[in-house]
């Protein structure tokens, strides 16, 4: 293998030059808007970026926490 980038064959659909920004969120309605603004303000050049927000749903019954 040579150099910076590893063999593409073993990896499925990764997109070269793409940064995935992954943010789990839990009951964060207030801050998510601000977060997205902040994230899109950053200059990632020469990369492109995508943002993945995982909405970890708020439990109806708090007892469910412990039932994983």
């Amino acid at each position: 293998m040579c150099g910076l980038y590893t063999d593409a064959r073993t990896n499925r659909n990764f997109k070269p030059g793409l940064i995935s920004i992954i943010a789990p969120c839990y009951n964060e309605e207030e801050s998510i808007q601000r977060f997205l603004e902040e994230v899109s303000r950053v200059d990632y050049a020469p990369y492109r970026n995508e943002v993945i927000v995982v909405n970890d749903a708020v439990p109806i019954d708090p007892e469910l926490y412990w039932m994983k």
Partner: peptide
């Protein structure tokens, strides 16, 4: 995600 680079952070 399907980026070349992945970053995780809180919101």
């Amino acid at each position: 995600a399907n980026g070349e680079v992945l970053a995780t952070l809180d919101v």
